[in-house]
């Protein structure tokens, strides 16, 4: 009985942990910085040989030309979904919709800008 309870507790702890939502800052650091760079300016460690440079997320001018829906789509389904480069990957299998929405807000913070 006692072992069963401990097992159940462990199981709960484990599954909650597995589904826990990450912060947008951590998601950006883990997945986006490799290309968009530690400053978000599009100068990540991977860019040397890339034929299309990653978007500068701090550039208010170009970022304000994108609606939140477009940014969401680009992140979830990748560059080609908004007629952009295949080098921008789809993150729909990595991030939940909620996490992607949070990332869109994180991008708005980086560019200090809104749509329009």
């Amino acid at each position: 009985m006692a072992t069963k309870l401990v097992f159940l507790l462990l199981l709960t702890a484990f599954s909650v942990q597995a589904q826990a939502k990450e912060t947008p800052a951590d998601n950006y650091k883990a997945y986006c910085v490799q290309c968009h760079g530690s400053e978000g300016t599009g100068k990540g460690v991977n860019v040397r040989d890339m034929s299309v440079v990653p978007r500068d997320h701090t550039d208010a001018k170009s970022m304000s030309g994108r609606s939140d829906e477009t940014l969401f789509k680009a992140i979830k389904e990748g560059g080609p979904s908004i007629d952009k480069s295949i080098l921008m990957p789809p993150w729909g299998s990595t991030l939940s919709d909620e996490e992607i929405n949070d990332l869109v807000q994180h991008l708005r913070m980086l560019c200090k800008c809104k749509f329009g």
């Binding site: 490799q34 290309c35 460690v45 991977n46 040397r48 040989d49 890339m50 480069s85 295949i86």
Partner: peptide, 20 residues
């Protein structure tokens, strides 16, 4: 490189590709 975009993160020779 072109159709799948894998080169962004992987080297396919010692001096070509991404490094994460």
């Amino acid at each position: 490189n072109k159709f799948l975009g894998c080169m962004a993160c992987h080297l396919i020779e010692p001096e070509y590709g991404g490094v994460s």
